[in-house]
Design a binder for these strands. Structure first.
Lengths: 190, 190, 190, 190
DNA sequence: AATGAATGAGGTTTCATTCAT
DNA sequence: TATGAATGAAACCTCATTCAT
C-alpha cells in the first residue's frame, strides 16, 4: 500500500484542503457525508480533521460561510449609484443568479439548509434579511409597491430557493425562471 | 413470571395505535423520535413495530399520507359547482387553512418534509399537483391570469409552506397571512 | 469462524454474565479493561453491553456493590449477642478476613478504588462507616479505649487496605497480618 | 508569518520550566492534565516536551522525585545527634508536617499516587523505607516498642497519607491530627 | 535545540433492525 | 401475531506520540 506520506502544510492551506474536500463530497452526496469520508477525500488522518474543526457542525458552518461569501462575490448588490437603478431588472438578475448558483450546489444546500443540521443551527437567514433590505430600498425608490418587507421577503425567498431546487432536480430551467420572474414582478409591482 | 400480556388486536387497530403514537411523538419532538420511543408510547414490543412497518421510513410514509388525507378532509375543494366560485376567495381560505393546519403540526412537518427523510423519499408532492389544478381551473374560469400552472404552483406552495413554518416559529400570524394573501392575489390576478 | 450464535437469555442472567466477565478481566488486568474486552469475554455484542449498563461507570458501580455484598456475606458482623463479644478477637478476625478477601481481588480493587473511577465516584466509603460503628460499639462495651471513632476508623481502614495491597503484591502475609494486628490492638486498647 | 520565537535556553532551565508548569497544573487539576496543557502553560512547543521527557510518565516521575526532595528539604530528619532525641515528639512533628505538606498538594498527590500512573510505576516508596529506618532507630534508642519495622512502616504511612487526603478533603484537621498522633504513639509505644 | 502540524489507535455510545422464543 | 433480547455497523471525539521542517 505504501505508507501515507505525511505532508506538512500551512494550517490555512490544510484547513482549506479539508473544506474543499468536504464541499466536493457534500455536493455529490448531500447530508450523508461523514467525517470518515471527508478525511479520506482530503488524504488526512481523522485526528487532523478535529484539529481544524472541533465539531462536525463547525465544518458545516464554515462551508456555509464560504457559500454565502462566494455568492456575494459573484453577484454583488450595487452599492454605489451610478445613475438610477432598475429595481425590477436587478431582482430578475439576482433571482436568476441565485437559481443558477444554488442549483449547481444542490447537494451542499441540502446538507446545510434542509437537514438536521439546519434544525440545530437555525441560521440567522441573512439571505432573507438582505432581500427585505432590497425590497425596502426599491420601495423608497418607488419602484416597488406597498408590501410588508419582512414577511414578503421571507415568502419570496422560499419561492426562490424552491426554484433552485427544482432546477437542480432537472425541471425546465426556463419555465421555472419565467414563473419566478412573474411572481416577483407581480408581487412587488407598484 | 409476568407472562407477556399479549393483546390480540385486529391488525388494522394495532397498526393504527402505532401510527397515532408516532404522530403524538413526532408532533412533540420532531425528527428526534426513535423507534424505541414509538413502541413505548404505543405500548407495543419493538418487534411488533417492524411487523407492521418493515422500515422506519415506511411509518413516516404512512404518517404523511394520513396528514394529507386529514387536511383534504378538513378543507375539501369544492367539487360540484353550486354556482360560480370566487377563486380568489377560495385561495385565501385555503391558504389560511393550510397555514393553521401545518403550523399546528410543525413537529411532524419538520420530521417529514425538512429532514433526511425528505431527501430519501422525494415526495410525489401532490399538494403541488393539487394547487396547479386549482390554478388551471381558476384560469379556465378566467379568474386567474396567464401564469404557467405547474412551476407557479411549485413556487407558491413553497411560499405557503414557509408561511406555515414562520407562524409555527412564533412570527406574527396576521402579518404573514396578509403578506401571503397579497403574494397569491397579485401573482394570480388576471 | 462460524457465525456467532445468538443466545437469548433472561435479562438478569445476561446481566450477570456480563458482570462476571468484567470481574474476571478486572481481576486479571485492573483498570486497563475496556468495554471491548468485556464484551469479547462475555461473548456478546457491544450494543448488548450498553443495554444493561448505560455507562462504563455503571458497570463498575455494580461490580463494587457486588464486591461489598460478597464480603458482607462472607464475614458478617455478629448482630445477635449470644454472650459477650470479644471485640479484640473480632477485630483480628475481620482484619484477616478483609486482607485475604481484598488481596485475592487486587485487580478489581485497583480498578474500583485506586483509579480515575474512584475520583469520579467518590464512594460513600461505607467500609469506614462500618468500622467506626464497630469502634463505637466496642467502646460502649469498654473493650476499646477513648479514641475518636470517625477519624480513627478512617486511618485504620487505610492501614487495613494497604495491608491487603501489600499481601496482593507478594509480601509476607504473616508479617503483614501480625503488624496490622498489633497496630489495631494497640491503637484501640483500653 | 511571525517566525517562531526560539528561546534558546540552557537545557536544565528549559526542563525546569516544563516541570514547574506541570506542577502548577497538576496541583490545580489533578490527573486530568494533558501534555497539551503543560506545553501551553510552559510556553513551549509540543515537540519540545518530548525532547525532555520521552514519555508523559517520565514527567510524572520527575515531579514525584522533586516532591520527595522538597519535603525532605523542608523537614529534614536529625542526622547529627546534639543530644538525645525525643523520638515520639519527632514522630508527631513529622506526621503533622507531612499532613500539611501533602494536603496542600492534593492535586499532585492524586495524579501521582492514586491514578493509573501509580499502577504503572509502582513506586519504590522510599517514604516507607525512611519511616521504617526511623522506627528502627527509635527502637535502638529504646523509645519504640518491638514492632516489625517494615510492615509497620508500610501501614503507618498508609494511615499518614490517608490523613493528608482527609485534611485536603476538608475534614477537621485537628481531629485528624489528634487521631493520627494517638495511633502512632500507641502503636510504637515501648 | 525547537517547532507544531499530523497521526491513528483507541474509546464510548446510539439505534434501526433481526430473530429465537 | 407478538415479544423483547440481541446485534453490530456507524458515529463522533481524544490525546500521547511522531516527524518533517
Amino acid at each position: 500500500m505504501g505508507r501515507p506520506v505525511r505532508r506538512r502544510l500551512h494550517p490555512e492551506a490544510r484547513r482549506l484542503e479539508i473544506v474543499e474536500a468536504a464541499e466536493r463530497l457534500l455536493q455529490a452526496h448531500g447530508p450523508r457525508v461523514r467525517v470518515e469520508d471527508v478525511v479520506r477525500e482530503a488524504g488526512v488522518a481523522k485526528g487532523t480533521f478535529f484539529l481544524y474543526f472541533p465539531t462536525w457542525d463547525d465544518l458545516l458552518d464554515t462551508v456555509r460561510q464560504r457559500l454565502v461569501a462566494e455568492f456575494d462575490a459573484a453577484s454583488p448588490l450595487p452599492t454605489e449609484v451610478d445613475g438610477p437603478i432598475d429595481w425590477m431588472a436587478l431582482l430578475d438578475l439576482h433571482a436568476a443568479a441565485y437559481i443558477d448558483f444554488a442549483s449547481a450546489r444542490q447537494g451542499i444546500g441540502q446538507a446545510l439548509f434542509h437537514s438536521d443540521f439546519a434544525e440545530r443551527r437555525s441560521q440567522a437567514d441573512n439571505a432573507v434579511v438582505r432581500l427585505s433590505a432590497v425590497i425596502r430600498a426599491g420601495q423608497e425608490a418607488e419602484a416597488f409597491g406597498p408590501v410588508d418587507p419582512e414577511p414578503t421577503a421571507l415568502l419570496l425567498f422560499a419561492a426562490l430557493d424552491e426554484a433552485a431546487r427544482a432546477v437542480a432536480g432537472g425541471r425546465d430551467r426556463e419555465a421555472i425562471v419565467a414563473a419566478l420572474r412573474l411572481l416577483l414582478r407581480r408581487t412587488l409591482a407598484p
